[in-house]
Amino acid sequence: MSNKSVSDIVIFGESEGDVRQVKKGPDRWLAGELAITNTRMFESADGAFTSGIWESTPGKFIAVYEEDEFYHMLEGEVVIADEDGGERTFHPGDTIVVPAGFVGTWDVKLPTKKFYAHYLPRADQEAADD
């Protein structure tokens, strides 16, 4: 029998999240105002899986992915570029996965809002898998 009930289900738009302002340091911030808000709606017991809503005003920053990220864009426009100069533009309705290890830039062209789900393997889990 599970110790979880229907009241433990997180419902986006109804459940309360942990709202945090995200600050990009001078080593990552490239342009714009970058007022970023991350509303974490769920975190697994081991901290390896999180999901929520991410919002940003226009600006550009360096993105370094330690986690795998699934995201579904709700509003805005973003150009993601890799270190080799390849780039793609994403709009509302686009759903993508950015793999852990990706390094590049995010250029937020229009105020953007996305649903995200992150998976960050724990170091001891990776060691157990070797």
Rank of each mutant, 00 (worst) to 15 (best):
P26T: 05
S51R: 00
T39P: 07
A35D: 05
R20P: 01
T50P: 05
D18Q: 12
E43L: 11
V19E: 12
G25N: 09
L34S: 07
N38H: 03
R28F: 07
E14K: 14
R20I: 01
V10D: 10
K24D: 01
I11T: 10
D27Q: 13
L34H: 06
S15Y: 06
G13P: 14
E43M: 11
S51N: 08
G13N: 14
S15I: 12
A31N: 08
K24T: 00
V19F: 02
E14G: 10
M41N: 07
L34Y: 09
W29N: 01
R40C: 02
A31V: 04
S15A: 15
N38W: 01
E16N: 14
D27A: 13
Q21L: 10
K23C: 02
A31T: 10
G13Q: 11
I36F: 08
M41L: 15
T39V: 15
T39Q: 08
L30R: 12
D27T: 13
E43I: 07
F12T: 09
S51K: 04
G13T: 11
G47C: 09
F42L: 05
T37N: 02
T37G: 01
A45D: 15
A31R: 12
E14A: 12
V10E: 15
S51P: 00
G32Y: 04
W29V: 04
Q21N: 13
K23L: 07
L30G: 03
K24C: 00
R28L: 13
S15F: 10
E16H: 06
E16Q: 09
I11S: 11
I11W: 05
L30P: 03
K24P: 00
R40H: 01
S51A: 11
K24I: 00
L34W: 06
P26R: 05
G17E: 08
T37K: 04
S51D: 03
P26E: 15
E16G: 08
F12E: 09
L30H: 04
E16C: 03
I11C: 11
E33I: 03
A35G: 05
G32V: 04
M41V: 04
G52L: 03
L34T: 10
E43C: 14
G32D: 07
G13D: 07
F49R: 03
G47K: 15
D18L: 10
E14V: 13
L30Q: 12
G47E: 13
A31H: 11
W54R: 01
E16Y: 02
G13C: 10
F42I: 02
I53C: 04
W29R: 02
M41P: 03
F12P: 08
A35V: 05
A48I: 07
F12N: 09
Q21M: 09
P26S: 14
S44V: 05
N38I: 03
T37Q: 06
F49D: 03
G32C: 07
G13M: 10
D18E: 14
E14N: 12
I36E: 13
T39A: 07
A35S: 11
G17Y: 05
V19R: 12
I36K: 08
I53D: 01
R20F: 06
D46V: 09
